[in-house]
Amino acid sequence: MDWTSEARQELDLMPPDGQQLILAARAELVTATDPYYRGIDADVSLPHWITVRPLASTSPGGPHIADRAGGRGWLIYTFICRHAEPQITVTDAFWT
């Protein structure tokens, strides 16, 4: 998983509990077969505190948002499915 410099700075400034949830969400995303969790009930295997959806419903293959902890924070990321090395890039991280 790659991070834009802004998203990495946001992660570094979060309180420890926010950072732990971010890193747990990261683990879920990097181990998923399809980090966009496309399809009906595709995200049923995710922990109850994280949901994944397209950032814009008109762009299902574009950036996605992983909401965490009942709306207390999120990760916005893009996924490029490459055969040899899939790539996830976090472009925004937020915690309240």
Rank of each mutant, 00 (worst) to 15 (best):
Y77F: 14
Q87I: 14
T89I: 15
T78I: 11
T4G: 06
P35L: 00
P47G: 04
L11F: 12
V44M: 07
P54N: 04
A93F: 00
H64P: 01
Y37Q: 00
S5F: 04
I80C: 07
L75S: 01
L29C: 03
D43G: 06
S59A: 08
A25V: 07
Y36V: 07
P16Y: 03
A42I: 06
A25L: 08
T96P: 12
P16F: 06
H83N: 13
Y36A: 10
L23T: 10
I88M: 11
R26Q: 15
I76R: 12
T33A: 15
Q19G: 07
L21C: 05
D2T: 04
P54K: 03
I65K: 12
R72Q: 13
P35H: 01
I22V: 15
D67K: 05
L46F: 10
L11M: 13
F79G: 02
Y37V: 00
G70I: 01
L75V: 04
V44C: 10
G70W: 00
A32P: 00
T51V: 08
T78W: 05
R38E: 14
T96H: 13
A56N: 07
R53C: 07
P86M: 06
R82M: 13
W3T: 10
Y77V: 04
T96M: 14
T51W: 05
I80F: 10
G18N: 01
T31V: 10
D34A: 09
P60N: 07
M1E: 09
T89L: 15
P35C: 04
A24C: 05
